[in-house]
Computed example of a mutant assay.
Amino acid sequence: MGKVLVLNASYEPLNITSWRRAIVLVIKGKAEGVEHNGKYIYANLPMPSVIRLRYYVRVPYKEIPLTRRNIFYRDAQTCQYCHYTGDALTLDHVHPRSRGGGDSWENLVTACVRCNVKKGNRTPKEANMPLGKIPRKPHSSLYFEVSKHLKRGIHPEWQKYVIGI
């Protein structure tokens, strides 16, 4: 049937859950349906695609690990210079390591081997190779999961509840 985006009482995304768990939360009065997909469980109970908890839940901030896999996922498996998508992808330091550039969300991008070699030990401006988008750290750990659903077009109604996707 699908997944349901769970919002905190403040409308910030908390989690993605199953439709069954979402229905239980709504029936118990712990959450309210915010968006519906047009399907119904019963005549007066629509199938929610977004629910909001009635009470605020404090969630500790979780740091998103800086990994090769997460960088590729953030950049949608696409070269940030020529927009190539395929298997021959590497990581490129926007500001080269030899010039003091470190490993950070803002300094690492996905690049194809050809563009990485062409750019070499220069900045994108020096190499006349502008970036497709400015690299930045994802806003939350839920970022990757929600963006996967949005990019597939499964839940376009989630877009208004997430920032930076």
Rank of each mutant, 00 (worst) to 15 (best):
A43N: 09
D87Q: 15
V50R: 06
T85Q: 14
K125H: 10
P46N: 07
E63D: 14
D92H: 04
H95Q: 13
H155R: 10
E126Y: 05
H139I: 11
N44V: 03
P65V: 02
P13G: 03
C115V: 05
G120N: 10
W158A: 05
K118F: 06
D75N: 05
V59I: 13
Y56F: 10
L7H: 05
R68V: 04
K133L: 09
E145L: 13
R69I: 08
P46L: 07
I71R: 01
R122N: 13
A76Q: 13
N128A: 08
K3S: 06
I71H: 01
L5Q: 06
T110E: 02
Y11H: 13
E32I: 10
I154Y: 12
I41V: 15
H95A: 06
L45N: 07
R68N: 07
Y40E: 01
T123H: 01
Y73N: 13
L89H: 01
N37G: 08
T78C: 11
Y42K: 15
S18E: 12
R114N: 14
G38K: 04
K28T: 14
N128C: 03
G102N: 11
Y40I: 07
Y55H: 14
R20F: 04
E126I: 05
V26R: 06
N116K: 07
E32F: 06
C82V: 05
S140C: 04
G164C: 08
V26K: 11
F144S: 01
V94K: 03
M47A: 08
G86Y: 03
H149S: 11
A127M: 02
R58L: 14
K30A: 10
Y55S: 14
T110K: 01
E157H: 01
C112T: 06
Y84S: 00
Y55I: 12
V4Y: 04
G120Y: 12
V162W: 00
W19L: 12
P96G: 04
T67N: 12
N70P: 07
Y61D: 15
N121P: 05
L91M: 07
L66A: 01
G29Y: 03
L14E: 13
G164N: 09
W158K: 05
Y11C: 10
P48S: 03
E106H: 15
L150V: 11
G132V: 02
K30M: 14
K39F: 09
T123D: 05
L5T: 11
V24E: 12
N15C: 08
I41W: 13
T110Q: 00
D92M: 04
K3P: 00
T17M: 10
R74Q: 00
C115M: 09
P124T: 12
K125C: 06
Y55Q: 15
D75C: 01
T123P: 05
Y161P: 11
R54N: 14
I71N: 00
G38S: 07
E145D: 13
S98R: 09
Y143L: 03
S140H: 11
K151W: 00
N107T: 06
Y61T: 15
G132W: 10
R52K: 15
L53I: 14
N8Q: 09
S18F: 00
H36M: 11
E126G: 02
R52N: 11
Y143R: 01
V34L: 09
M129R: 04
L150D: 08
P135A: 02
I51A: 08
L45S: 00
K28Y: 07
Y84L: 08
R21S: 12
T110P: 03
P135E: 00
R122L: 15
H95K: 14
A22H: 06
S104F: 05
P65H: 02
